[in-house]
C-alpha cells in the first residue's frame, strides 16, 4: 500500500500488531466441498468440478473460504463497531488438492483509515499464509474488514 493515511492511534496499532502471528489452524481439504463451491460459482472446467479429473484441484479463490480460529489478535482493542467484509484477495502459488493438509497462519497485514459519516472507518487486512505438509507455501488469503466506528482515543 502506498503512503496510506494513518492517524497516530492507528500508527500505534500498526507498530504493535502488524506482522505478528496470532492464529494457526489446520485444514484438511475436502474435494467435495471445493467441487461444490466451484459449481455454485459457475466454474465449468472439469479440473475444478470433477473429482475424477487427473488434475482435480480447488479454484484459486476457494482458499478465501478457509476461516481461521480467530480473525483478530486476542489482545486487539475493541474499536466499537461491527466489522464488515470489505474485500478478499488471494495470491495463488501452487494447486490445492483434495485431501491436502494445510496449515494457515494469520497475521494483520495492514491497518489504515478513511472517513465515514459517523467517524472513521478503520480497515484491517488479515493475511492467512497457507502451507502444505511439506512446508510449501500454496497461497495467501487476505480479508479486508472495515469497522465503521471511531476509535476511542
Amino acid at each position: 500500500m502506498a503512503e496510506a493515511a494513518v492517524d497516530e492511534d492507528v500508527l500505534a496499532l500498526r507498530e504493535r500488531f502488524l506482522g505478528r502471528e496470532f492464529d494457526e489452524v489446520t485444514f484438511v481439504i475436502n474435494g467435495d466441498r471445493f467441487a461444490e463451491y466451484a459449481k455454485v460459482c459457475g466454474e465449468t472446467a472439469p479440473r475444478f468440478t470433477d473429482p475424477a479429473h487427473p488434475d482435480f484441484q480447488a479454484p484459486p479463490t476457494f482458499v478465501s473460504t478457509l476461516v481461521g480460529g480467530r480473525s483478530m489478535p486476542p489482545d486487539f482493542p475493541n474499536l466499537g463497531g461491527m466489522g464488515m467484509d470489505a474485500g478478499k484477495g488471494v495470491e495463488w502459488k501452487a494447486p490445492v488438492r483434495a485431501g491436502a493438509k494445510l496449515t494457515g497462519k494469520s497475521h494483520l497485514h495492514d491497518i489504515y483509515t478513511k472517513t465515514g459519516r459517523s467517524g472513521r472507518m478503520v480497515f484491517l487486512v488479515t493475511r492467512m499464509e497457507l502451507r502444505d505438509e511439506n512446508g510449501v507455501h500454496v497461497a495467501n488469503a487476505d480479508t479486508r474488514t472495515v469497522i465503521r466506528e471511531r476509535i476511542k482515543k
Binding site: 466451484a38 455454485v40 460459482c41 459457475g42 466454474e43 479454484p59 478465501s64 474485500g87 478478499k88
Partner: peptide, 15 residues
C-alpha cells in the same frame, strides 16, 4: 456472500 462473488469472478476467467 463476498467469497461467492469472488468465486463468480474466478469462474469467468476460467470460462
Amino acid at each position: 456472500p463476498g467469497v461467492m462473488s469472488q468465486g463468480f469472478l474466478g469462474a469467468m476467467i476460467h470460462r
